[in-house]
Design a protein around this nucleic acid. Structure first.
Lengths: 205, 205
DNA sequence: AACATCATGATACGTTCGTACCACGAAACC
DNA sequence: GGTTTCGTGGTACGAACGTATCATGATGTT
């Protein structure tokens, strides 16, 4: 045989090529040949590592969400040192906004997959549809802890507030994506809303 | 010639067929032949009334947003009789949620078009991308009036609050669409948020 | 050294899609 | 009443796409 090649690594490379080209031209416009060209391999190789296009797309989605999850937890870790729960939540939510090219691509493709999931039961069964629930649980926990520490405005329901925050963040992300809104104004909207959930910090002591 | 036929009406019929079939199978999966079959006409006719597929899609988008705008203003008018600004805003936002089949289709296709608009400059230039700004202006106005009447919580910025409300509503809509959330829980989240914007009505006097 | 197997290339096949072409009947207009 | 124009049908064409097939070199294994 030829030198044994790392299949997992190769599949990752191809999946990243898929994400790149789909980010540029749209998921609907990407074919096997485009992915092959972007990855610098032959069409046959894409077929070899992913037998069918559906499997390629599925793996591409896994890769996309995996990469984004890493990015998100990295930012959370970085922001989780000093500051309070508000900074943590804010870091989480602004990371989810399409500010740079990477997060733009993520939002774009994630939304594309979501749309496909409406009519494709295989995609609908994919965990990426369940993952936001995990994020919602995480935010709810943070809010609950903050509430126990007396950091929230009175009368806030942690779970409802968490769901609202994530939904707003997602909606703002789409607005940015289609050019309706700048990342700065979206951040301002988010910040304003956080002021209505968190007790305003008195910086003057 | 044969009997002169109402072009506008015919185009509307075909556009509605497009919306129906795209709502069922997804916008990405719909072809000219599918639209023709759904409308009960020949492929040639679809070509005749819309020379190209792009024009058909564009007109379909116009029709979609037009119909939804009518539905929305109808609900606003119905809800605009007795109650205060909160009821008006709530009616506007819950109308935007994909609760019944019609609004589900609207959300589904609207999001599909939005995704396409990311990579298609013709679609990106379409007014449907600007319309939300109009909605935002309307909500902002209502909130400003409510604020002048002392109906809002203190410290609320009308414009930021309006943007946040619409973004949240859109995000919740997507959640419902992909089955992450029930319409009821989405409405609860929205209601909770409105309680943080509007002064709570004292029903007991 | 022989052989089985893995990795890769080139290319062909069948389908589908958007569009174009050709044809023809029917009504409006001069 | 002839002719032009509108509406409609059928069908063909070229491209692209996903997939399958055939071929072959390289490398482990025995």
């Amino acid at each position: 045989m030829p030198r044994r090649v790392d299949h997992a690594e190769r599949r990752t490379e191809i999946a990243e090529a898929l994400v790149r080209v789909a980010g540029r031209r749209g998921l609907h416009a990407v074919g096997m040949r485009d992915v092959a060209a972007e990855a610098g391999v032959s069409l046959r190789l894409v077929q070899y590592y992913f037998e069918t296009k559906e499997k390629l797309l599925l793996f591409g989605l896994e890769h996309l969400t995996g990469k984004f999850g890493e990015r998100l937890s990295a930012r959370m870790r970085a922001a989780g040192d000093a500051p309070g729960p508000r900074a943590t939540v804010e870091a989480l939510l602004t990371t989810a906004l399409p500010t740079d090219e990477e997060s733009r691509t993520f939002h774009h493709l994630y939304t594309s997959y979501a749309v496909l999931a409406v009519t494709d039961r295989t995609l609908a069964a994919q965990p990426f549809i369940r993952n936001p629930d995990a994020a919602e649980g995480a935010v709810t926990d943070i809010l609950r802890q903050a509430q126990a520490a007396g950091l929230l405005q009175p009368g806030v329901d942690a779970q409802l507030a968490a769901a609202g925050l994530l939904a707003m963040s997602a909606g703002l992300g789409t607005s940015i994506l289609v050019g309706q809104r700048t990342p700065e104004s979206a951040a301002a909207v988010l910040d304003d809303h956080l002021n209505r959930v968190f007790r305003t910090v008195d910086t003057d002591g």
